[in-house]
Amino acid sequence: MKGEVLGGVGLQMSRDDNVVTAIDDVEAGAVIPYDSGEVGVEEAVPFGHKIALVELAPGDEVHKYGEVIGRATERIEPGQWVHTHNCRSTRGRGDITDGKEEVA
């Protein structure tokens, strides 16, 4: 598989990604070795879902596959679950009239 599994917990698809994908259901308290330190998983994260490796401020880009997959909508701590509750697409936003301008 592409990428690297960190600590048997999460798959980092590309070296610059700031999230990993859980390769099994992950319990709170699991530890992900990262950047010569470790990230403690804060909450249960289901198989296939993402866990933040770094702190993200609202508006920060979320990276997976070495690409931008959206922006944080609220503050995300390392080890937190990253999903629709705190990360949002910047594309296909017909609900925002100036939506096209938001796409960097």
């Binding site: 198989f47 879902h49 993402k50 997959i69 959206g70 990253v82 697409s89 296909g92 936003r93």
Partner: peptide, 19 residues
């Protein structure tokens, strides 16, 4: 677009955004 892409099943399966 998020109403349909990703679909509820996609989201349940861990896909957060269309990107």
């Amino acid at each position: 677009l998020r109403g349909a892409q990703p679909s509820p099943g996609n989201q349940e399966g861990g896909l957060t955004t269309i990107e």
